[in-house]
Nucleic acid binder design. Structure first.
Lengths: 203, 203
DNA sequence: ACCTCATATTGACAGTGGCAAGATAAAGCC
DNA sequence: GGCTTTATCTTGCCACTGTCAATATGAGGT
């Protein structure tokens, strides 16, 4: 019945109080980031996309850095999800799990380059903020455990090697580099990445 | 005698025509980039630093993208120089040369993080511009030859593996991540990097 | 001397992030 | 119910940014 409005109004009547602005702004910011990229990110455009005045975001996120911090924290959660979802479809042995996590790492960077850059190549989020710091540590711990399951001793150098290889491939993909690999057919590309990732695994 | 000025004037009398603004702007831009970072880079501040009006840079570089493109091209030259200078101090065998190039890669990213990001993690320079594209290709060819000297066949996958490992370590260092390695004493850190880089070398 | 044209300045414009002040409505309290 | 309090949102302003058009300057060629 739609609250019994007398004359048929526009789908969303403009209410003064949005009701769920926090989440709406996060969604708008993520969309804006994906479309315009990180370097052209504008707080005011995010507000316009959410159908709200330019100063509204301040009440929920403080400033643009606060919004980007929240977005980065959410990004880390999706980043970890990308790794685990790839791992779920892979064999259980430690080596295959590490490769699968790396492929998830790369897939996230390839499919969401702007979000990837926000997380790994930006100074704008506050990486000291609890939410974001937790996400970052959680991602490291995830990789750390994966490597430990293979070697039995979570050696920082072993972890760094696996991390750097996955990150290097991912970052170069997000940047649009490495044409020789990117121009491969998807299946061949995946095989190439898997082979390269395997080289970084100790043992 | 300083051009025989009657009353002792300020060191640099403000001339209308700068004379060497192009290079002065590039130098100012590089300094500004190093101090404020890429994301806070401002064309007007660069102009102020060079002691010139805010519209002056346009006559030499068009717009801010043009200035950053020129800066990135110069950055690639310094980037390659960092690799070759490290290689010069290393043994001549192919494996040691690859490791040395990687250490130069990482040193450049660590010492000039903003310039590194401009080159590898920014959309603002025009990577289609001849100067910049040439620098990028030259860097890839440099690595390619190094790997070819080891394997004899410049395989794209071999090259990608070496590149990704060096780039991953470099980018994570530029981003201030990988505390476990960064907090090592310089000598230990260098040893760790060398060991990790060696894992990516085929054969 | 003069003219030409590259070089640099000034001033304007729209866009941006952040702040202060006010408007609105939801929630708590009697 | 009626009232106040409080969170939420808007409006208006400021300084700053990049870019453009119009103007000023002066170096080099004739």
């Amino acid at each position: 019945m739609e609250t019994e409005s007398p004359l048929c109004e526009v789908p969303e009547k403009p209410r003064y109080h949005h009701g769920a602005l926090h989440d709406a702004l996060l969604a708008a910011a993520e969309a804006e980031l994906a479309e315009t990229g990180l370097e052209a990110f504008s707080l005011r455009r995010v507000a316009r996309r959410a159908g709200v005045s330019h100063a509204a975001p301040a009440h929920h996120f403080g400033d643009v850095g606060g919004l980007l911090t929240a977005l980065a924290a959410e990004g880390f959660r999706q980043f970890i999800a990308a790794m685990t979802s790839h791992q779920a479809r892979a064999p259980q042995d430690p080596k295959a799990q590490i490769v699968a996590a790396g492929l998830g790492y790369i897939a996230f960077a390839t499919e969401r380059p702007a979000l990837f850059r926000l997380i790994f190549s930006s100074d704008r989020p506050d990486f000291g903020a609890p939410d974001l710091a937790a996400g970052s540590e959680q991602a490291y711990d995830h990789l750390s455990r994966l490597v430990g399951a293979r070697t039995g001793r979570e050696d920082p150098v072993d972890i760094a090697a696996v991390w750097a290889m996955a990150h290097g491939l991912a970052d170069l993909m997000a940047a649009g580099r490495m044409d020789t690999i990117r121009h491969l057919a998807p299946a061949d590309r995946e095989r190439a990445f898997a082979g390269i990732l395997a080289r970084s695994i100790p043992g």
